[in-house]
């Protein structure tokens, strides 16, 4: 249907909104005069918009503003906005104390985490199952394949190791790895699929991996996707809010027709235990998805983490002998930092 019309259908809706330039508008008008089908479509879009315009504007309940005012003063009382505090007081004592405590705590925490790290550490991964290596999801179970799979002759892509780009001549396998929490996997992958299919991408295969308790650990979508679909899925998924940080570069600019492989997975215990990292950034990222950012940091810093790991290893030998003392000092520092902060926040009694 679309193919018969020389104007893109989406221009009809932009035309109603007055968001086309004059040349485009003219083309739409010209086309409308000859195409009854598009006239009907335009009318339908127009009515849809009128229905929406007919909805009354919902006004907030009267007490909401009061409540908001109180909530804001509540927040304000205990927390001056950060920039202001920084400017007024410079680097705070508490920050220095906390940093010192952290430096001391780090090796201890490292030691503890290597000692205590058990397979069940990541609650989302099966107790016994070794975590799936991030780069080779070949061993996933195919749990459900949708009705509209269209096997064609030369399709090898799903079988190939989906490394970044370059599976066959015409096939580009794009990997977008997103790191999410378990319950989000289903939601994001359903949405990703919706966006892709709506744009004419074809879902060729979907596999889901569960842990031993039946939690969804990973969902892989393999899509036959024209380039703009690849981009749209990337964008669309980002649009799921704070869920997802960034898709990989290859993912957002697929410039060749091909296959998109979308791996949506929960955060897993990484192969090389990057020790402290997982716990550390949790505080730093108040807004957004901690698990995701943690994942990103791990990726980009993995090189230095290995070096860091070696350093920690050496430190550990020394630390092991001094563990009780260190733990004591660290705790003391942490406590003092807390007290300093508390005083600062509440203020000295005048």
């Amino acid at each position: 249907m679309n193919s018969r019309c020389e104007i893109p259908r989406e221009n009809l809706s932009a035309y109603i909104d007055g968001e086309l330039n004059s040349e485009e508008s003219m083309r739409v008008e010209e086309h409308l005069s000859t195409c009854p089908e598009c006239r009907r479509a335009l009318e339908s879009l127009r009515r849809t918009r009128e229905f929406l315009a007919g909805l009354p504007s919902e006004s907030p309940p009267e007490d909401l503003r009061v409540e908001l005012r109180e909530a804001i003063s509540g927040v304000a009382a205990q927390d001056v906005p950060r920039t202001v505090r920084g400017r007024r007081r410079g680097i705070s004592l508490a920050a220095v104390a906390a940093a010192a405590a952290l430096v001391l705590l780090l090796p201890v925490a490292a030691l503890l985490s290597t000692q205590l790290m058990v397979p069940g550490h990541d609650r989302l991964v099966a107790e016994s199952g070794d975590p799936l290596p991030a780069e080779a999801p070949n061993d996933v179970g195919i749990m459900g394949s949708p009705p509209e799979i269209e096997p064609e002759g030369d399709e090898e892509a799903p079988e190939e190791t989906p490394g970044v780009a370059g599976a066959g001549e015409d096939t580009v396998v794009v990997r977008d790895s997103l790191t999410l929490r378990a319950h989000d996997v289903e939601w994001v992958s359903a949405n990703a699929r919706m966006i892709a299919e709506e744009m004419g991408g074809v879902l060729r295969k979907q596999s889901r991996t569960f842990d031993s308790r039946g939690g969804l650990v990973e969902s892989i979508l393999i899509l036959d996707a024209p380039p703009e679909v690849t981009a749209a899925v990337g964008e669309g998924i980002m649009d799921m809010g704070t869920l997802v940080a960034r898709t990989t570069e290859e993912g957002s600019e697929g410039d060749i027709d091909g296959t998109m492989e979308l791996v949506i997975s929960v955060e897993r215990t990484p192969d090389v235990p990057p020790i402290v990292v997982e716990e550390e950034p949790a505080e730093a990222v108040a807004y957004g998805s901690p698990s995701l950012l943690a994942g990103e940091m791990r990726r980009s810093f993995s090189g230095s983490w290995i070096r860091f790991g070696a350093w920690v290893g050496n430190a550990l030998v020394w630390v092991a002998g001094h563990l009780p003392h260190l733990a004591f000092f660290a705790t003391a520092f942490f406590l003092s930092a807390g007290v300093v902060r508390l005083i600062r926040r509440r203020g000295f009694p005048r």
Partner: peptide, 28 residues
């Protein structure tokens, strides 16, 4: 409320187009 991934899409292109060609009542 869990999505069912196996449900057919409600918004497939063909269906939309057919729908657009259909009649909506006049909002007025």
């Amino acid at each position: 409320t869990v999505f069912s991934l196996d449900d057919p899409m409600e918004t497939e292109e063909g269906e939309l187009d057919r729908q657009l060609a259909g009649e909506l009542p006049d909002p007025e």
